[in-house]
Design a protein around this nucleic acid. Structure first.
Length: 861
RNA sequence: GGGAGCGUGGCGGAAUUGGCAGACGCAGUUGACUUAAAAUCAACCGCCCGAAAGGCUUGUGGGUUCGAGUCCCACCGCUCCUACCA
């Protein structure tokens, strides 16, 4: 910059001391061009070095990248670059999750093609990635909407079909009326569509599923071994899989007299078999076909139909929540309790779900709050069958022969812990989930052949059909005589037609050139399946394709996947804790069982980065108008300041509030450290440092260098970039102290070089352009700093010869003494006692604790 | 209702895992340079009392220990996830 008029002076500006100005834009453009031309980010050749696969979750190209992407990719890029410097073979790829509904909506709005919109956005995102200096191998750039990629998704679908892992079924599904498609269970978030927030409707449709429930137990067990995953994510997956241990129990339907058991059995699932003596009613959901059958043609039918209609009118979001009042009607029929042989009335109620367990529940108001609420509302009995041992009720009821059927003083169900009463031979046993009472009663039921121990999962099969255009077509045909017939492998991929006019409302289902086909089996005219696959199928295996991105024979070669996988560091947002991360764990296991690879888990270490919020701690959003685009930092300060700020302001897993002042502070540091390196470079010589003859100042700086690199190396390993940067700042401060204290002519040339080169290399993964420029122009290096070795450190050299020892008297720091680092315990003790004489005078020293190199605690009374 | 996590200066956050709390940075105060401002540089910067010596301090209360931000128990507060899942 010109000091007078603030315009930029072309060429290399420098100050009175011959130090060039730090001009971020010029050097960033310069090195981005060189890196690209020299193809320096190509994946390292497979060698005998250890491998490291660093992966950031690929973006959906909905526009340009935002701060969340910038943070995600900066973390990964720093990891990948440092791993390369540490001597790993590194795979660091990037691509795009390019199928999806926003492209269709944009195409309609702007009267263009979904593909055109998608490719344009991808180009823009690629340009921003380049401007950020990210080190992606361009050879791995996968776009999931390319036929070379989605062909293999279809291929794997067919393999799953052959193994029975893909199937078609008709069942009630979540239909989003705004997106005009069905949604997977995982995609109904808070009772709303995950994408648009509309409330899905239940529809009975024939849809395609992947059998993820076959892997429920394995997916659950696998979590225990994922030590590199955040506990919160593992817990979310555990909850989602939702394993419940319990029992299935058969209740006989009573004949019309209400007391005589018939042969017709109705099965319930319960986790609380111990409470079976407290069953005072029985409940079916309104959607239950059995419920409809029981009331058909009876006086109860009208009330039932009304309840059913009312339930259907209530949206699923309103039906959820325990606050909602429970509604039910009596069916007129009874079941017989298999242990008490007493009848219980069958009710039909809206708080029971058709698709969990067996779709029938035994009502135990004493042990379950929901059943309790329902019983109170409809005046059903609440027989006490469980209570605390110190409750007077316990003594009263434990030997009771005739059933006491209610205790009107109760206002809520009993807590889980308690002991059984009024429960026949089981009275006195401890009840609760997994209790001895549960075990005893299940044993009894099994003996009688009317029940068995069983495990229930909450996880449902993965519904992958989408009635949308911009996705991967399901490679199946339907023939009137042969049924569902797979498209032969040699005809893959089933190509998406490019010319669909979405603006005119054309859909795949109504587009004859797409759906008209012939049956691969019998050759007669047939109908192509027009559903496309959920985009989460595309993102469930992209990390495998990166290992072998151009394979035309297979999705990926087994040896390449086995070499690079699993991903060593996977970085992305917590919003994928269930959806993407669970699907990918499933898909990897399917690939394993198809013989495509040899491991179970795709991601060894997972880092969920926190959100980037605005200055007030609010989430950035277009509607709030508080979005800070990456360009607003890159333009004034450059990409290196942006990268430094993102990593320095907060640890990666925490949310961070955008603070423009702190960003300016990071830019200030880069400028200051630039001057520090340039100043050191003026007296630098690349030769070994001789510590023996070094001055006191030199020795101190040498120690700081080693301390900094040790700390930095440790912090990179645990991905705590904020403290790594703090250590680099400390070294820069120490170097400034050295420069201030020692005149240029007296500076140690070897040390000057080592210090400058350590600063440059330690910061290189974080601020690569800054480092590359100084590495070449100030330190005269000819290789790329990207390929330079990570600086070494000497643990011994990082320690001071003389250390300050804290002297405590009974746990309180009173004074400090300087001691040689290797001082023996008795020396330390003697020195400390002398130094602390003031505080221990007249007291008796009971004992002295010496922690070498740190402190002495004198316990005195 | 169930689960997970967190609580440290004015702010973001450190603390080598039981050993000197507050690293590093932001903000702030004072000074230098400047006609002035910005930028830059230097010093200060948890709270209280004080002339000094000192005392207090990691949400609150208790415990273990020579020693606790860190471990244990109880409570208070916040955040996220999940939910008529039987």
């Amino acid at each position: 910059m010109c000091a007078e008029c603030d315009t930029k002076i072309p060429g290399k500006a420098s100050d009175a001391f011959g130090i060039p100005t730090y001009d971020a834009h010029t050097i960033e453009e310069k090195w981005q061009k060189v890196w690209s031309e020299e193809n320096v980010f190509a994946t390292s050749a497979v060698s005998d070095k250890p491998k490291k696969y660093v992966l950031e979750m690929f973006p959906y190209p909905s526009g340009d990248l935002h701060m969340g992407h910038a943070r995600n990719y900066t973390i990964g890029d720093a990891m990948a670059r440092q791993a390369r410097m540490r001597g790993f073979d590194v795979l660091h790829p990037m691509g795009f999750d390019a199928f999806g509904l926003p492209a269709e909506n944009a195409a309609i709005k702007h009267n263009t093609q979904a593909s055109a919109w998608t490719y344009k956005n991808m180009d823009q995102a690629i340009a921003t990635m380049r401007r950020m200096g990210f080190s992606y191998d361009p050879n791995t750039l996968i776009k999931t909407c390319d036929p070379e990629y989605y062909k293999w998704g279809q291929w794997m679908f067919l393999k799953m079909w052959e193994k029975g892992l893909a199937y078609r079924a008709t069942s009630p599904v979540n239909w989003c009326p705004s997106c005009n498609t069905v949604l997977a269970n995982e995609q109904v978030v808070d009772g709303k569509c995950w994408r648009c927030g509309s409330i899905p409707q239940k529809r009975e449709l024939s849809q395609w599923y992947l059998r993820i429930t076959d892997y429920a137990q394995e997916l659950l067990d696998g979590l225990d071994n994922l030590e590199g995953w955040p506990e919160s994510v593992k817990q979310m997956q555990r909850n989602w899989i939702g394993r419940s241990e319990g029992a299935e129990i058969k209740f006989a339907l009573a004949a019309d007299d209400g007391v005589t058991p018939t042969d017709r059995l109705i099965t319930v699932f319960t986790t609380r078999a111990d409470t079976i003596f407290g069953v005072s009613f029985f409940v079916l959901p309104p959607e239950s076909p059995l419920a409809a059958e029981l009331v058909a043609g009876t006086e109860y039918e009208a009330a039932y139909l009304e309840l059913k209609a009312a339930t259907e009118r209530v949206s699923s979001v309103d039906r959820q929540g325990s606050e909602r009042e429970k509604n039910g009607v009596f069916s007129g029929r009874y079941v017989i309790n298999p242990l008490t042989h007493k009848p219980a009335p069958i009710w039909i109620a809206d708080y029971i779900l058709m698709d969990y367990g067996t779709g029938a529940v035994m009502g135990v108001p004493c042990g379950d709050q929901r059943d309790f609420d329902f019983a109170r509302k409809y005046g059903l009995p609440i027989p006490p069958i469980i209570c605390e041992q110190d409750d007077p009720l316990y003594e009263e009821l434990k030997d009771q022969k005739d059933m006491v059927i209610d205790n009107v003083s109760w206002d809520h169900a009993m807590a889980a812990e308690g002991y059984l009463v009024q429960s026949g031979e089981f009275t006195g046993l401890k009840g609760g989930k997994h209790s001895e009472a549960v075990a005893a009663i299940i044993e009894k039921l099994e003996e009688l052949g009317i029940g068995k121990e069983t495990v229930q999962f909450r996880l449902r099969d993965w519904l992958i059909s989408r009635q949308r255009y911009w996705g991967n077509p399901i490679p199946m045909t339907h023939c009137d005589c042969c049924g569902d017939v797979p498209v032969p492998y040699e005809e893959l991929p089933v190509q998406l037609p490019a010319s669909l006019d979405l603006g005119k409302g054309e859909t795949l289902a109504a587009y004859a050139p797409f759906y008209e086909t012939t049956c691969p089996k019998c050759g007669k005219p047939a109908h192509r399946i027009t559903d496309t696959m959920d985009t989460f199928t595309c993102s469930s295996w992209y990390y495998l394709r990166y290992c072998d991105p151009h394979n035309s024979e297979l999705p990926f070669a087994k040896d390449k996947a086995n070499h690079w996988m699993p991903v060593d560091n996977y970085i992305g947002g917590i919003e994928h804790a269930i959806l993407h991360l669970l699907y990918s764990r499933f898909w990897t296991r399917v690939c394993r069982d198809l013989g495509l690879l040899n491991f179970d888990e795709p991601f060894t270490n997972l880092l969920c980065q926190g959100m980037v919020k605005d200055e007030n701690g609010d989430v950035m959003s277009k509607s709030k108008g508080n979005v800070v685009p990456p360009s607003s930092v890159i333009e004034p300060y450059g990409a290196d300041t942006m990268r430094l700020a993102i990593l320095f302001i907060a640890p990666p897993e925490k949310d961070f509030d955008w603070d423009p002042k702190a960003v300016a502070g990071c830019n200030r540091f880069l400028k200051r450290a630039w001057r520090t390196v340039c100043t050191l470079a003026q007296t630098a010589k690349d030769e070994p440092f001789e510590i023996q003859n070094a001055s006191k100042d030199s020795k101190a700086l040498w120690r700081e260098i080693n301390r900094c690199i040790q700390k930095c190396t440790f912090d990179f390993d645990r991905m705590q970039f904020n403290t790594a940067i703090a250590a680099i700042m400390e070294l820069a401060n120490a170097a400034d102290d050295y420069i201030a204290a020692v005149p240029a002519a007296e500076r140690d040339e070897a040390l000057s070089f080592i210090c400058a080169s350590s600063l440059v290399r330690a910061l290189a993964p974080i601020c690569p352009h800054w480092a590359e420029e100084l590495w070449h122009e100030q330190l005269g290096q000819t290789t790329f700093v990207y390929c330079a070795p990570w600086p070494d450190y000497d643990e011994e050299a990082a320690k001071a010869d003389e250390v300050e020892i804290a002297v405590q008297v009974t746990g309180k720091v009173r004074t400090h003494i300087m001691m040689p680092r290797e001082a023996a315990k008795d020396e330390l003790e003697a020195a400390a006692l002398a130094a602390a004489s003031r505080w221990i005078e007249g007291k008796q020293v009971i004992k002295v604790i010496c922690v070498p190199g740190s402190l002495v605690n004198i316990v005195a009374k």
